[in-house]
Design a protein around this nucleic acid. Structure first.
Lengths: 240, 240
DNA sequence: CGTTCTGTTGACCCTTCTCAAGCGGAGTGG
DNA sequence: CCACTCCGCTTGAGAAGGGTCAACAGAACG
């Protein structure tokens, strides 16, 4: 059963809050429908053309073809994220989105992208979202350039938790991490073996604890510092 | 002396080709003016608020504050690039743009950003440019995650040359590299010492030759392969 | 003609990868 | 209910890659 945009629980925290009912109704006009996927299913593949959807529930991994032909995890998508913007721009894209848990999405019509852009308040909000994703990529880039394995791992934990917390789907400094070690390692530019060692180091230092797919943040401030942030987050803010 | 947008040599290759005279006139309405900077001068700093300009001539380095407080090169801007989009989005930004050569820019009014977005064909073209920059960041991200020092160095050379070539300011597989080794190393997430060793390896393998700030590509195809691209570029296309 | 700043080089060491083996849980068939 | 298998996770030993540091060479600049 489709949820009306104005009743969507993702209005807050991911870029669509503060919209009038009229605007939300306009957004609804660009929807194709809701779909559900089992863990591991391919949600979308740019080889079959551009796509656009917002992830309603569940986690998803975006992968790209690596040098040897195999696919590597390249981006993590969480509930509320608008996925597929990269397939709407100029130039080819080889992204494939795979459900990392059972997931449901709210699909938009990529053929009406230009119309969405031209719609009064929607185009502006879309630009904000794209700029936010661009900023996130820049932050990630700088982390990869500057931080060693431990720092990247710490950063993964704090940014993932922060993203979940502002979506109100995690609290008390803990969350379930439903991803394979291999995928997390690829996101961080590490090997699964070394990721494990970094987890162990964080645990030993009393910063965080990872077991049975549960992550528990033990020392929030120290973890941010390990992640290379000056102190507590003055960056990586919520989207408005 | 200001150049009219419709006479700008950067209409091609950087996202503004195919525009009607009317649209170019509209763009001209958002300009503040032209400015010139000496090598090393600060062109813009997000600490003093948002900014937006297109680089008319010269190279520029965008830097961000690193963990220890010092600044690290984070992005390279070439003639024709639209710089400062990241300062217009939601959330703070700590980017500073420094001229890496003598440079001239064409500055736009950041306060009129919303008006630009709303202008008929301009908003759509701006979205294309932002999506292109987002895609470039993603590509860079994947390169950092997957490629060792040699591959990153090779990739830097081929992508920089490709960008210069499609702007018609480099040809014959050679270009001047007016950047300090330190900055290039920071862009690639390496140290200057190791960057030097990678250059030496490329030279020894007969792929490229770097001396006196001149880069010469000796084996184009092998260099792309070293850069992790399947073969010749089917990605990193020009912006339309 | 010194001073300063960038680039080059070598020695050494730490980080991270590679590879291989062992472990354990989830299915699956008996 | 019990093997059996498969797949992902963990762990260790060894190797390679890249960082650090210090010394030196050149160029730019006063």
């Amino acid at each position: 059963m489709a949820i009306a945009c104005r009743a969507c629980r993702h209005l807050y925290g991911v870029g669509f809050q503060g919209h009038s009912d009229d605007e939300l109704a306009a957004i609804e006009g660009f929807r194709i429908g809701h779909e559900a996927f089992r863990n591991g299913a391919v949600i979308a593949d740019s080889a079959r053309g551009p796509f656009l959807f917002s992830l309603y529930s569940g986690w998803a991994i975006e992968s790209v073809r690596g040098g040897n032909g195999g696919r590597k995890a390249a981006r993590l998508w969480l509930p509320g994220d608008l996925v597929g913007l990269g397939t709407l721009g100029p130039g080819p894209s080889d992204a494939r989105i795979v459900a990392a848990t059972d997931a449901t999405i709210c699909r938009f019509d990529p053929d009406r992208w230009r119309a969405m852009l031209a719609a009064p308040a929607i185009g502006e909000r879309l630009m904000e979202i794209v700029l936010h994703q661009r900023a996130a990529a820049d932050d990630e880039l700088n982390a990869l350039r500057q931080l060693p394995a431990l720092g990247r791992t710490a950063r993964f934990i704090v940014t993932t938790y922060a993203a979940l917390e502002r979506r109100r789907i995690a609290h008390n400094d803990r969350f379930r991490l439903p991803l394979m070690r291999q995928h997390v390692a690829e996101l961080l530019g590490l090997t699964a073996a070394h990721l494990r060692r970094s987890f162990a180091q964080l645990q030993q230092a009393g910063l965080a604890c990872i077991e049975n797919g549960q992550v528990r943040i033990l020392d929030r401030e120290a973890l941010w510092i390990a992640a290379g942030e000056p102190a507590l987050p003055d960056r990586l803010q919520p989207l408005l």
